[in-house]
Amino acid sequence: MQAGHFAVALVISSYAPELTGGKVDAFSIESIAVALAAHQLPNLDGIPIMLGWAKKAFHCTWSHSLLFALIVGLILLPFNAAWASLSFTSIIIHFLADMPSSVGLPLLLPFTKKRFTLNLWADTGILDWESFKGTYLQAWTWILEGGAFLFLFIRAYQEAVWPFV
């Protein structure tokens, strides 16, 4: 998933009160910032690859494991339990959004390298035009990413935020 990640993160922020026991408001700047940052966090594994510090095969490995989500949640927990809950959920849902890709995610690292995938669309690499074009020529990309934006529209209407104020 590419552009759809932003819609998914905003949908997560709309459920912030449920996820944080009412400590963070839906669609607040706080909930949007935490959900967006945490949701994009696994994809920061592209930075060491771009800088030449890691091989391409590093993408979608450790940062896409349940252990990573747990570590992020546990690091945040002593400082802000609401952020920890929101971040953990955002990262787990990032994994769910990536699982339709054929590349698969090694969710159970370090116990096993087995990759879990729904194989709904073929992986098209990272961070270039070929990747972007190839993704959006496949059916399920449109169904799921479009569905994420449609769901965001519905949540915005239900919560009476822009453009429904």
Partner: peptide, 9 residues
């Protein structure tokens, strides 16, 4: 937004 889902279908 519906069109993007519909295009996928």
């Amino acid at each position: 937004l519906s069109y993007s889902v519909a295009l996928g279908i």
